[in-house]
Amino acid sequence: MLYQDIVDFSLTTPAWLHTLAEVGTDAGLFVFAALFVVAALRAWRGPARDLALVVAGPAGIVAAYVVSEVVKLLVREDRPCRGGITTIAVCPPSDDWSFPSNHSVIAAGAAATLVLAWRALAWAVFPLAAVMAFSRVFVGVHYPHDVAAGFLLGLALAPLFALLLVGAVTPAVRLMRTRLSPR
């Protein structure tokens, strides 16, 4: 089984890689947050729609996350680490379901919505999201299909929700700019 092969391999890797894999997923989320701030600063003087895309991105990610939580509650798949398998990470509590991976939804959603606002980031953010998603299998808390489904959900839904919000956010950006501009 692919999950078992990945977890067995992960246990043979150095301790520093275990720490990096466990901490790296959450640290990657901070990298994405910082990139949203940089993207907002970059878009500040550009067209209002560009800044609206940056602002709508995190809202799209949250909406995709909510969808993934609903799917988790409907599917209720047990975590693979609950089967007595030795893993790098501590297994989440029994009411924390496995399918789909929320970390993967958020990582892929962040990458996809950032690329909507700043296409030149694609070369960096998609590989970062993929590594963050894979780390969930590597540390043993998700099956590969949990991560793949989460990645696809984030990739499809977060930019869709962000684009649906842009029409409402753009006038708010224009209003904010007029209120903040020196008279």
Rank of each mutant, 00 (worst) to 15 (best):
A56I: 04
A59Q: 11
D50M: 03
A59W: 13
R45C: 04
L73F: 15
R45Q: 12
V62K: 05
A40Y: 10
V54T: 10
W44H: 01
V66L: 15
L73Q: 15
V75M: 12
V75H: 12
A56Y: 03
L41Y: 14
W44N: 00
L53T: 04
A64S: 12
V62A: 15
A59G: 14
L74H: 09
A39S: 04
E69L: 15
A56L: 02
V62I: 15
G46D: 10
A43R: 01
L41T: 03
A48L: 06
D50K: 01
R45P: 04
Y65K: 08
R42S: 10
V75W: 12
W44Y: 09
V66T: 11
A59K: 06
P58Y: 06
G46H: 09
A39W: 01
V75S: 05
A43M: 02
P58R: 03
A59E: 06
A59S: 13
V67Q: 07
V62Y: 09
D50S: 11
R45V: 06
G57D: 02
W44S: 00
V71L: 13
A39G: 02
D50E: 13
G57L: 04
P58F: 08
V67D: 07
D50C: 03
I61K: 03
V75P: 11
L41F: 14
A43P: 04
L51C: 05
V54L: 06
V75N: 07
R45K: 14
S68I: 08
V70Q: 05
E69A: 11
L73E: 15
V54F: 09
R45A: 07
S68D: 07
L74N: 03
Y65A: 07
V55L: 07
V75C: 11
A40F: 13
V71W: 10
R45H: 13
A64R: 07
P58I: 09
G57V: 08
K72V: 13
E69N: 15
V67P: 12
A40S: 09
V62G: 10
V67R: 08
R45Y: 11
V55Q: 01
A63D: 11
A63I: 09
A52W: 09
L53R: 05
G60K: 00
P58A: 05
V66C: 08
V70Y: 12
G46I: 04
V54R: 00
A63N: 07
A59C: 14
V66I: 14
D50A: 11
A52I: 10
G57C: 06
A52K: 03
W44Q: 00
L53E: 03
G57H: 05
A48M: 07
G57I: 08
V70M: 10
V70C: 06
V62T: 14
A40V: 08
A48D: 15
V71R: 02
R45E: 07
A48I: 08
V66F: 08
V75Y: 14
K72L: 13
V70K: 03
L74S: 08
R49L: 12
L41V: 12
A56C: 02
P47C: 05
I61V: 15
V54N: 02
A63T: 11
R49P: 09
D50Q: 07
V55M: 02
W44V: 01
V54Y: 05
A64W: 08
A63L: 14
G46Q: 10
A64Q: 06
V70D: 01
A59M: 15
R42D: 12
L41P: 02
A52G: 05
L73N: 15
A56D: 00
R45G: 09
S68N: 06
Y65W: 14
